[in-house]
Write a protein that binds this DNA or RNA. Structure first.
Lengths: 213, 213
DNA sequence: TTCTCCGTAATGTTCCCGCAATGTTGAAGC
DNA sequence: GCTTCAACATTGCGGGAACATTACGGAGAA
């Protein structure tokens, strides 16, 4: 079975390491990093499913597809809950296995998130969430918006007008120096927190966020 | 079929938005962010598979599980290659669907293990089961969903809107502060249980779960 | 029935934010 | 240098919006 499968996969330019025992599987998984693992339930030295938690515990998070003759629901559920990514009962069509392999490999390894870092400060733009040394930083809304605008243009100056647009929606009309007030309060907090960044003033133009010297 | 499925999933504390046409599906997927998408091939206005490339092109990368009566291999392969993550032929056992859902959801939530821990609280994300000091914690459905959303983003803020999406399907219309009420009740319980965690509110933004200092 | 849960609404509380008063800085001109 | 003025900084305050809390009644499940 395995050699027939190897041939079929080889035709699709997939490179395989084939082992027959749990011991060998463990060792191989430890030594190398695989794009995916095909796991048969019947191994020479035991039940293949038992391998899954072991591998996961060992920080091996390659996708695992379980191949089995026992195509019963309980087994499938058990396998999936143990940490398998997919399950195929024999007999199966090789083309489908390949399709499932592709599906499993396609999954994004990491969630892309746009995080901006300045000094010890970080800012997750998609969640509007600042953090200092990894710990979340809780800020009032307006100050948060100020910080967001400054960090998005890290190191470059932000026009006073641009800042106002970022902080206030178009309809609200501001007729005081409340923007300055927010900048001031934010500045004070960054000082007290010793955040390692400072808000500089460009007279007549706007503001600018820089790592403290 | 769909309503039976909804009921079954609801029993597992999974919140569902159910639509019947491709147009509605497109809109829903655009408007909200889903943990997973169950896609039937027979929709009122066309072939469900066609939706997959559209969604993927629209930067929607929620895992997609295709449900279908045509349990033929060609269809499965096509679906998987179009960008689906899994494929189930009808008739199917609901438990297996849930297991596959769990398998598919396991990836993005956390890399190493399925249980999230904050303070003395733990949460098994794939089974929606919270526990305190190892002992299971029984919570009403809505409070459970609130806690789940907060713990999945452990330490980071959860938008008010995101929280509402996690707790309510979009067909239920909420016109009161019931969400606040649930947060309040959950907070009280966590207090009384001395769980070592606290729900902070970020005015104008949302909430955040943190270990009590 | 009885019990739990949930949405609603009334009521209480917090704290953000715009405002304004006052202080500080810095560039320009002599 | 000194003066002057405008731009900016800082801080307290009051109103009000956002949030918290709790009781109540209906609905559904045991």
């Amino acid at each position: 079975m395995a050699s027939a499968l190897s041939d079929a996969l080889a035709k699709h330019n997939i490179v395989i390491d084939h082992v027959t025992s749990m011991a060998d599987a463990r060792e191989a998984a430890d030594m190398r990093s695989y794009d995916a693992i095909l796991l048969d339930r019947q191994l020479t030295d035991g039940e293949g499913l038992k391998l899954i938690p072991e591998l996961r515990a060992g920080n091996i998070d390659s996708p695992i597809i379980v191949l089995t003759a026992h195509n019963d629901h309980e087994g499938r559920i058990r396998g999936l809950d143990l940490g398998a990514d997919d399950y195929m009962g024999k007999p199966f069509v090789v083309e489908e296995l390949i399709a499932r392999l592709r599906a499993v490999l396609r999954r994004p390894t990491l969630l892309s998130s746009d995080v901006i870092s300045v000094g010890r400060l970080a800012f997750d733009a998609s969640h509007m969430e600042p953090s200092l040394d990894g710990k979340p930083l809780i800020l009032p809304r307006r100050e948060l918006l100020v910080l967001a605008a400054l960090m998005k243009r890290n190191g470059r100056t932000v026009t006073r007008e641009a800042l106002a647009n970022a902080v206030y929606s178009f309809d609200v009309e501001i007729q005081s120096n409340s923007l300055d007030a927010h900048v001031s309060r934010l500045r004070k907090k960054l000082m007290n927190l010793n955040a390692g960044v400072a808000i500089h003033t460009i007279r007549g133009i706007g503001y600018l966020l820089k790592v403290a010297e």
